[in-house]
Amino acid sequence: MQLNRDDLLKAYRDMRTIRAFEDRVHDEFAKGGIPGFVHLYAGEEASGVGVCMNLDDRDKIASTHRGHGHCIAKGCDAKAMMKEIYGKRDGLCGGKGGSMHIADLSRGMMGANGIVGGGPPLICGAALTAKTLKTGGVAVAFVGDGGSNQGTTLESYNLARVWNLPVIFVVEDNGYAESTASAWSVGGSQKKRAEAFGMPGLEVDGHDFFAVNEAARQAVEWARGGDGPSLIHVRLDRHYGHFEGDAMTYRADGEVEKLRAERDALNIFRAKVVQAHLLESSQLDAIDAEVAAIIDEAVAEAEDASPPGEVDLLTDVYVSY
């Protein structure tokens, strides 16, 4: 897919929205405004957006603990997401899911998942639906390097292959499963694992939107064309800890500062498009300002929104009972 200027503007806007959203959640969490656990996607924006730019309304994604970025990349409403993370009644899931279960099926976003490795089997099912009903849709399972070691994920590789499903497994390897290094916890390589199951494995630099976008374009083409599943191993970094409150004592001194300075996906994107005269700096600055305003509004609205009431405790368990 040749990206036009509108595509590039959208890519930047989505990445910037994720970054601003996550940076702000980080700040508000520290202030005590947000309950529970949150796991932030800042630093990984090029992956979610690079992949989802290739998807449309027919397509489904399943996410991880670190799901806010995938939500935004798949078109979920950032304000409704913020309300959900605050546990408010008008949140994307009525305040019943929160950060770890944030979802919007109407956008093809089948949920962040509190269970590591929970998504790949589900995405095989979404792909089976697309194949059975001949919708032309594809399904993408985002998995972390931690999730890549779960049996569910490896079983799903096999199932997707033997059923020849239109699935793309995107392994987002940010170097750490919780506090444990992927260099230690992953045996073999993600690419060779894919090849061992009879599907192509691609390796890309996850700081480079264009690299991810091109790999995903290829994988989506295979899936839509009936060639079945493939895997993309995306190497990237997270700017924050595993969860908010993680002191990150397992990371090297200066590690985060260095990657923020040298390997920031938004900076890399900006430099490329400006140098190539595809977009003007001023256009990107304008987006930054618009996004900042939206996130300010999102937080203000979320803080003001009503929590669910006692009546909401008992609803939405069953369709009928």
Partner: peptide
């Protein structure tokens, strides 16, 4: 075979696939 699917012996994957298929429009 399109509607009667044999599976590998991988209950996690195919029960999960049934869940995902149910959430996206089939009645598995």
């Amino acid at each position: 075979r399109e509607r009667v699917l044999d599976t590998p012996i991988s209950e996690s994957a195919f029960i999960g696939a049934a869940v995902g298929a149910a959430a996206t429009g089939l009645r598995p």
